[in-house]
Amino acid sequence: MRRQDPLAQERRARLGLLLVTILVIVPVALIVGTVIVKGIGAVDWEFLSTAPRNGLREGGILPAIVGTLVLVAGAVLWSVPFGVATAIYLVEYAPRSQIARWVRLAILNLAGIPSVVYGLFGLGIFVIGLKLGVSILAGTLTLALMNLPVIVTSTAESLKAVPDRFRVASLALGASRWQTVRHIVLPNSLQGILTGIILETSRAAGETAPILFTVAAFYLPRLPRTIYDQVMALPMHLYAISTQVPNIGMDVRYGVALVLLGLVLGVNAIAIAVRSRMRRNRIW
C-alpha cells in the first residue's frame, strides 16, 4: 500500500466525521422546523385554554394538555419512590446479593418490553383485574411501571458516580449505612437522580400505547375531577385527530404536535440546566 501523508489523512478524517455529525442534526432540525412552521398558526391563547368543540374540529386542546400533565405527574408520583428506593438498596446495601442479581435481570427485561405490551398489561391488571376501570389511577400506574426500570437504572448510575472513598470515610467515622446514604451519597447524587427522572418524565409525556387502553379518552371536554376519571392526552389526541376525524385542518394537527414538542423539549431543557449546574458545582 502506498504511504499516506498523516496530516492529509487527519484532515480528511476530521472533515468526514464533521459531515456525518452534521447529518445527524439535519433530521432533528427538519422535524422541529416543520412542526413550528406548520403549527404555529394554530397555536393561540384560545387553542391552549379552551376545550375542543364540534367533534374535535374546533376549539382548543386544554383538556389534553391538562391530561398529559396529570398523567406525567401521577407516573412520577408512583415510580420515583419505588425506583429510587430500589436503586439505593441495589447500590448501597446489597450490590452482590442474589436478590440484586434477580432485580437487575428483571429491570433489564422490563426495559426491553415494548410500550404497547405495558398498555395491555395495564388493561389486564389495573383496569380489569383490580377493577380500577379506565382511569387516571390505572393509566398512571401503567406509565409508572414503564418508567420504573429507567428510573432505577439512572438513579443507580448517579449513586455509583459518588466515589466509594466518601462512603468508606463516612463509615469509618461511625456513621451507619443509612446515615452515609442520607448525608453523603444522596446530597451528592441528587442532581443526577433528578436529571434522570426529568428525562424519563418527558419520555412518558409522549407515550401513547400505555395510556391507550388504560386512561385516554377520545373526546372529553371537561377537566378531570378524581383519579377515577378518564382524561384526554396530547399524543392520543394527535393520533385521534390525524386518523379518526375527517376534514380537520392540517395546522391544527401540527399545532397539537407543536404543543407536545414544546412540552417535551421544555422538560428536557430543565434536565439539561440541572445537569450543567451539577457539573459546575461538582467539587471532586
Binding site: 472513598r165 470515610a169 469509618a172 467515622l173 453523603i184 451528592n188
Partner: peptide, 14 residues
Amino acid sequence: RRVGMIFALPVALP
C-alpha cells in the same frame, strides 16, 4: 467511634 481511622490518601468529605 472509639477507634478512629485515617487513610493513606486524605479523604475530605464533600
